[in-house]
Simulated assay, not measured.
Amino acid sequence: MPLSMYQVSVPVFVRGLQVLSDLLKKAEAHAQQHGAVEGAMISARLADDMLPLSGQVQRASDTSKMTIARIAGVEAPRFEDDETSFDQLQQRIAKTIAYLESVGAEQFEGSEDRVIKLNFGGFPDFKGSEYLLTFALPNFYFHIATAHDILRNQGVAIGKRDYLGPF
């Protein structure tokens, strides 16, 4: 049986967000153990022209929920980008996962051929499958990897196994 658009989107995004949540838990424990200022870690970035940790979490959230909305043809919730604590970032991840899990597999019928038009960046129109596989998933993982790298740069004891998550 071939993989469905649902199978290569919702469970993949949920797993990635759960990994991100676990990374943030380790970051929070690190901050508490070392007396670090939570806000300093949340506002940390790898380079001046890159988003901080909070922005990476927000973009991973936005990418996953907007991808599902676009390919399933449903409405996505809007979240303000105002998180300033680990608890708020965890809440955002939880709300994103709840939304993703609320979209049923039947809503993805025919989505591989649905035309996806992005209203930013001057991108061409995509077929649903092309959008998911060549734009959305790489973008999602970029933000997860960047969050991981920011935390590593801040001294959090995480590595590749933490990025890959549990099996």
Rank of each mutant, 00 (worst) to 15 (best):
A40E: 13
S129H: 07
R45I: 04
D49R: 10
T96V: 02
K26Y: 05
S61P: 10
D113K: 15
L20F: 11
M5H: 06
A44E: 08
G35Y: 13
Q7C: 11
P77F: 04
A157W: 11
E83K: 04
H30L: 06
Q90L: 08
N119W: 12
T67G: 10
A98E: 10
Q90I: 01
E112P: 11
I68K: 07
V74W: 12
Q154P: 06
D48F: 12
L17T: 01
E75P: 05
L164N: 13
Q58M: 08
I144M: 15
L151K: 02
L51T: 12
I158L: 02
G16L: 01
S64K: 08
K127C: 10
F135D: 06
L164E: 07
G110K: 01
V12S: 03
P2N: 04
S43I: 01
M5S: 06
Q107V: 05
G155R: 01
L118Q: 03
D87W: 09
I97A: 02
D48L: 00
R78Y: 12
A145N: 14
V12G: 02
V10E: 10
A60K: 11
S111F: 05
G39P: 09
S111H: 01
S4C: 04
Q18W: 08
D125W: 06
I158H: 00
M50V: 04
A47C: 07
M66P: 13
M50P: 04
D87Q: 09
L132S: 01
A72H: 02
Q32M: 14
M5W: 02
D125L: 05
Y6R: 11
P166A: 15
S9F: 05
E106L: 10
P11M: 00
T84Q: 06
A76Q: 06
S43C: 03
A136S: 14
F79N: 13
Q90N: 03
Q154T: 07
E130I: 07
D149G: 12
K25S: 00
K25V: 00
E80I: 05
T134Y: 06
R161E: 09
D62M: 00
S129A: 15
Q18S: 05
R161L: 11
K25D: 00
S111K: 10
A44D: 15
S43G: 05
A136V: 13
A98H: 03
F120M: 12
F13C: 07
Q107C: 11
G159N: 12
R161Y: 14
L133I: 04
G159M: 11
F167S: 11
Q58R: 08
F126H: 00
L17D: 01
G55K: 04
E38F: 07
E75K: 14
F140V: 14
G128K: 05
E130T: 13
L3C: 12
V37F: 06
A72D: 02
S85K: 12
Q56T: 02
P11G: 09
L46W: 01
L23I: 00
V57D: 00
E83R: 03
L46Y: 10
I93A: 05
L164W: 05
E28G: 08
M5C: 08
N119C: 06
D149A: 15
A29T: 11
F13K: 10
Q32A: 15
A76F: 05
P2V: 13
Q32R: 15
Q32E: 11
M66L: 15
A69N: 04
L23E: 00
Q7H: 12
R92N: 05
Y131V: 04
R45S: 11
G155E: 06
